[in-house]
Nucleic acid binder design. Structure first.
Lengths: 136, 136
DNA sequence: TATTTGTATTACTATTGATAATACAAATAA
DNA sequence: TTATTTGTATTATCAATAGTAATACAAATA
């Protein structure tokens, strides 16, 4: 399994890369401390420019998901903190999503159920062994 | 109370207007079917261009929050539907938010509690009478 | 010495955001 | 009637940003 880039999607490539790596960590396809491919290697595989991958890695690094070392390349952090900046972002985005859901008539219980389902879908995937890890 | 535009914020003005109107509806400061100020009037009050307000109104209309009538101006819809496109957007955004929260060590219960709190904060505000409505 | 790493720099292009000036049709108020 | 007010369409301009790309570089390793 390799990252899937959708060139017709309006979402920028480096955001797609970033999102898929975060999702990969969340559902256990990418392990903590796992080395990531080099920017050149991943760029080759995806058919994009090296600096596009670098931009994704720089973003992931600034968010605390990965760390890079000049020689050893990039790897997932061994521990990913719940930072204050993420806490702010989470609050703001949840507030907007809930405002919209509420205005459209969604009940609180329905919303919470949806969240619980998504959360549990990650938990079940994470139980999978390392043999299901991403081939990146 | 008037809409508060932050010119130093990187969020585009028309998005700020859109967000604040959605939030206003959600917490009851703006009622269903309530008339909104004309694009010229709101533009004057905010000190922005008429077409910037028009852009916000066009977005709100496309999302089903408001409707416009050539003579009577814009007003909030009497009923705002839970559209398939919003359902998709909600799923995608929740998936990303939950992935990030989980990776950062947030427990499912903590996440659900946060959502419930936000939901309830809207519910309590909505109980307020019409005298608390926005002065827009 | 050769190779591989991330990264800094620079450049190019397309897109976006905001504003502006008009103009128009429709509806209302005088 | 006439004047005014509504949203909107059109066109234009300008600045800033975003996205991608090509290249070069320092550091570390084999």
């Amino acid at each position: 399994m390799i990252l899937q880039i959708n060139m017709t999607d309006s979402t920028p490539i480096y955001i797609q890369i970033r999102n898929q790596i975060v999702m990969g960590i969340a559902d256990g396809k990418i392990a903590l401390s796992q080395p990531l491919p080099s920017v050149r290697q991943l760029a080759d595989e995806l058919g994009v420019n090296m600096m596009t991958v670098n931009k994704a890695y720089t973003l992931l690094k600034s968010e605390g998901y990965i760390e890079t070392d000049r020689r050893h390349g990039a790897k997932v952090c061994s521990k990913i903190n719940f930072s204050p900046s993420f806490s702010l972002q989470l609050n703001n985005e949840l507030e907007m999503l809930i405002a919209q859901s509420r205005v459209r008539g969604m009940e609180k219980e329905t919303f919470l159920k949806k969240c619980a389902d998504i959360f549990e879908s990650f938990e079940s995937k994470t139980q999978l062994g390392a043999e299901n890890s991403y081939n990146i």
